[in-house]
């Protein structure tokens, strides 16, 4: 059909065509690396409406070097990992990358290996593979807890650990867990690899320490020694929801039963995951009795920077951090004492 055949195609309302567009960013396409303008707590911009992604170029490299070359040549490219956050954003046209570099065909980015004091996880390892790993279930309860409550079981079949971290949504679950673990994040760029401590990786909402021409390729978690344990306790409104607040705790006990090492980090109570350093410090060297744990939880709550939104008031979330910290600490300590 030719559009000129249609009587309605004569311009209908053409008043004041030169006026600056007063529209909101209804169909605006914010650059991918700058999500600061979107309220991350509302998840989807209220004005967005369009369920079909805009056009883009698609490339599926089969090696990391090929992927890096593509990223180097195309600064507007965006990396596609599991796609479970990116594709919905594209469907709402809140993200409109000119090119997607799909990592799913790079075979050697999905693995779970332990050795030389580290658990090494390939960036493209899917949540469901973490969830089903016996090694993780046995030795890494904090990671097992976390991966079990990311989104829902079907999303976990595609979403990846690397994607969860690189997307740097303050509501994502793994960032706090990696901070509590003192994990290292491996970035591979044109000049080779560098490692970034998890605590320095998250720069802002949807912003990381990765350079545009770098890929997150591996996550390294220090292998816990004897007497270690961890827990992730998340408050969510339903399965699949982002956390109202969540707390990641990793501890190891000295032979005398005192806390030797303590990692505590908080999810979705700030623009980035928050390391509760004062709480960690207050616990180190102490016997983990309930009074001590409560005191530390107080400090964790003080470290939180929540904002009031549909998930609850600032006051509620702060109180929640305290409750969840105590519960996570109790669970982590019990696991450390048991193992």
């Amino acid at each position: 059909m030719d559009k000129t055949e249609l009587p309605w195609n004569n311009p209908v309302v053409e008043a004041n065509a030169s006026a600056p567009a007063a529209r909101l960013g209804q169909y605006a396409q914010p650059p991918l690396r700058n999500f600061g303008s979107i309220d991350p707590y509302n998840r989807i911009s209220r004005e967005a409406k369009d369920m079909i992604p805009p056009p883009f170029e698609y490339q599926a490299p089969t090696s990391v070097s090929e992927a890096l070359a593509l990223l180097g040549k195309n600064p507007e490219a965006k990396v596609l990992a599991g796609g479970q956050s990116l594709i919905p954003l594209m469907r709402f046209r809140l993200a409109s990358p000119a090119m997607l570099v799909d990592l799913n065909r790079i075979g050697d980015l999905a693995y779970i290996k332990e050795g030389e004091g580290w658990l090494r996880i390939g960036a493209m390892t899917r949540e469901s593979d973490l969830d089903q790993s016996d090694l993780i279930a046995k030795k890494y309860p904090l990671l097992a807890d976390t991966t079990h409550v990311v989104a829902d079981p079907l999303v976990r079949n595609l979403s990846t650990l690397g994607g969860n971290l690189a997307h740097a949504d303050p509501a994502n679950d793994h960032p706090a867990t990696m901070i509590a673990y003192r994990a290292q994040i491996v970035a591979t760029g044109p000049k080779g690899e560098r490692t970034i401590p998890a605590s320095e990786f998250f720069k802002g909402p949807f912003e990381t320490a990765l350079a545009p021409n770098e890929l997150l390729t591996e996550i390294r978690i220090p292998a816990p020694g004897k007497g270690s344990g961890g827990a992730y306790v998340k408050m969510e409104r339903k399965v699949g929801d982002f956390a109202t607040a969540a707390v990641a705790v990793q501890v190891s006990l000295a032979k005398d039963g005192t806390l030797e090492r303590v990692g505590i980090a908080l999810t979705n109570v700030g623009l980035v995951p928050i390391q509760a350093s004062a709480a960690e410090k207050a616990l180190t060297g102490k016997k983990p009795d309930d009074a001590v744990l409560r005191q530390a939880a107080d400090l964790a709550a003080k470290a939180a920077k929540p904002e009031s939104d549909a998930r609850g008031s600032e006051e509620y979330k702060r109180a929640l951090v305290k409750t969840l910290t105590v519960r996570a600490l109790r669970k982590a300590v019990a696991r450390a004492q048991g193992g």
Binding site: Y58, A60, L80, G83, Q84, I87, P88, R91, L100, D102, N104, S128, P153, L154, V155, N157, L158
Partner: peptide
């Protein structure tokens, strides 16, 4: 999708 249950609205056909 290769034996895994996935949401086909959140995958591109090309993948």
């Amino acid at each position: 999708w290769n034996g895994r249950a996935v949401k086909s609205c959140t995958l591109f056909a090309v993948q």
